[in-house]
Structure formats: structure tokens, C-alpha cells
Nucleic acid binder design. Structure first.
Lengths: 183, 183
DNA sequence: CGCACACTGTACCACGCAGTCCAGTACCCG
DNA sequence: CGGGTACTGGACTGCGTGGTACAGTGTGCG
């Protein structure tokens, strides 16, 4: 399943066959159909698995953030990582777009991944607010949604254009939105 | 090709076969391979065609906008249309994500679509600036990128969650960004 | 020891796919 | 009118696909 998550992420789900995954994993068909009902179930499981990996990485970067400077640093690191990976699109967003409307279970897994990401951002913002860096009226959940949407869109644009400029603008705009609520 | 654009948009490119398109269009294989080198060329052409349609629609909605109120109205209409369509994801973004990294020509077509959209937004913002509604220091191009990223991300989130709330937040956040530059 | 059973590899199947081929067909130009 | 040519439909091919069937294997338990 780890192999499946890798292959799905790098080639796309539709462009990866069960046989590809099995060959990469060194497993046979019998094994596969013993543990999965079919291709779609693997796809859903792999999306869930990938989201888990991504969210784990994000937790490392955002879990301890409790200041604007920390958030800026985390997002700069995120953008740098994205560039280093060759602007592959959002790891969750790409799968989500491919899967939404064709695989309900996988769609829910992707939505859960987005939810976890958003909660991570909201947590950091909430800590900023409690430390007095954000005004009391700031709404961490709302800001987190706005920030995540901005990041997601920035990645989509940068992927299509093969140019980091869009993501950088999106990050900066998201940050500006947060700063607007600074005390 | 119109049929191809429709089918690709509603089922995804990878999930649509050449035969499907031909059947929908009532055409034969000979005809197809007379006009296209193969599947990938059709995909690229269809993406370009779809982007043209979308941009044409957007031009109708944004081409005449020159005030904040007009922009708000246009974006509200956009969100309403998105909801009415059943939150299918961004018509350009979904194709773009599927095609980037696997079909260079199609990727460029999608990037051009994004570019046109962004220019439409930038034009509206520029007119707002010239009418004095935005401060002179406002940068329409930068704001347009930020706004487009926000919309794009909002659509991605709403698609995954089947819930308009995310897009609405993203639209509101993008608008807030613009208002921050109001005179 | 032996047997039952959960598990595994692989040969296999029917099917749908992209792409080829060719026998028409209609239209244009002389 | 007649012939060449640009175009068209559809049969066909080889291959990769998801899924099945089955024979084999090892392990735990009586």
C-alpha cells in the first residue's frame, strides 16, 4: 500500500495499474485480492495513507507554531519544499481532484486530510491569539480555511505554470490576511 | 472536439476513451486519426477549447467590472454558478492537475487559461484603481494572482468536502484582500 | 505427526483500449 | 463527364487491464 501511495502520487491514480503496484511491491495478485475488494478500495486506502503521511509532516512543521514569525517560517519552508520537489501540485489536492466524484471513500479520505491540515493551521492561529499576537475577535477557523485555500490555489497555479511565483504570492497574501488581525 | 471537452470535463481525461468521444460525436476512427495525431493531441486541444469556453464566460462576468461592488457581485455569481453545477471543481484546475506532468501541450493550454483569467481580474482591479477606488500603490497583477489562488483553492476544498462553505470563505478572504487596498 | 486453513504466487480470462488499415465515397477541377 | 484526391466509416489487431481460479505452501493446533 505504501508503494501504491507512491505510484499514485507520482503518476496519478488512473495512470497506475494494479499490476504496476504489485510489481513495485513484489506481491502477487492473490495476496492483493485477499486484502482488498478491488482497485477502488486500494485507491481509497492509498489516498488515506498518503494524507496521513502528509499530515504527519505538516504536524512536524506547524504543530509547535505559536507566533507570526513561526508561521512565516513554516510557510517559507513549505514553499521551499514544494519547489524542491519540482512543483508537483498539492499532494492531497491532486489526488482529491482525481478522485472526487468517482470514489466516494477516497474523496472522504482526502477531505479528512484537508480537515486535519486546516485544524493544524487553526491551532497555530489560536495559539497566536492566546499569546496576544492576534486580536481576540480573530477567528482562527475562518483564517485557517482562507489560508489553506490560498495555499492550495497557489500550488495549483504554480504546478500549471511551472513557476514558483504564484505560490509565493499566495503565501504572502495568506500571511497578509493573518497580519490584518494582528493586535 | 466539443464532445471531447465535455466528456473530459465531466469524467476526467484518463477515464474517457477515444471511442467514447467518437461515439458521442458520431464520428469514425478514420476521421479522428486524420485530424489528430493521437489521444494526447486531442486532450491538449480539448483542454485549450474548454479553457476558451470558460474564459469566454468569465469575460462576460468580469470584463465590465470596474468597482468593488461589481467585483463582489461577479464573484457571488461565480460561487452561485459553482454551487448550481454541483461543486465539480474548477473547470480549468481539475484538467490542469490531471494533465500537468503528463502532457506538456495540454499543461500549457491550462496555464494559458489561468493566465487569461488572472488578466481579467487584473483588468477589473486596474479599472478600480484608475477610478480611484483602489489606492495608487495597489498592484492589480499581484492582487489578481492572490485572488485567483484563493478562488482556485476554495473550489478545490469545496469539491473535496461537497460543501460550499470553504469557497465562500475563500471568496470573502480574497475580497478582504482587495478591500485592504481600497482608498 | 498430520491435517486444516489462512495465505500466496501465477496462469489465465474476457474485455476495452489506442492505433492501423483499407475499401469506399463525394467533391473538385479539368 | 471522368479521374484524382481528400476524406470517412468501420473492421481489425495486439496489448494491457482488472479480476478469477487454482494449486501450492507453511504454520499452528489437536
Amino acid at each position: 500500500m505504501e508503494r501504491a501511495a507512491e505510484l499514485f502520487a507520482e503518476r496519478g491514480i488512473a495512470a497506475t495499474s494494479v499490476d504496476d503496484v504489485l510489481a513495485a511491491a513484489g506481491a502477487g495478485k492473490g495476496q492483493f485480492y485477499h486484502y482488498f475488494r478491488g482497485r477502488d478500495e486500494l485507491a481509497a486506502a492509498a489516498v488515506g495513507f498518503r494524507c496521513g503521511q502528509v499530515v504527519a509532516g505538516l504536524t512536524g512543521a506547524l504543530g509547535g507554531v505559536s507566533s507570526l514569525a513561526g508561521l512565516e517560517e513554516a510557510l517559507a519552508g513549505f514553499a521551499a519544499g514544494f519547489e524542491e520537489m519540482g512543483m508537483p501540485g498539492c499532494p492531497i489536492g491532486t489526488l482529491s481532484a482525481e478522485v472526487a466524484g468517482r470514489n466516494e471513500e477516497a474523496r472522504l479520505a482526502a477531505a479528512a486530510g484537508f480537515g486535519a491540515w486546516e485544524r493544524l493551521l487553526a491551532g497555530a492561529l489560536e495559539r497566536m491569539r492566546q499569546r496576544g499576537e492576534l486580536r481576540a475577535e480573530a477567528e482562527p477557523a475562518w483564517l485557517a480555511t482562507a489560508l489553506l485555500a490560498s495555499l492550495e490555489g497557489g500550488m495549483a497555479l504554480s504546478q500549471a505554470r511551472r513557476d514558483m511565483a504564484s505560490l509565493r504570492v499566495a503565501v504572502e497574501a495568506g500571511l497578509a490576511q493573518v497580519r490584518a488581525w494582528a493586535s
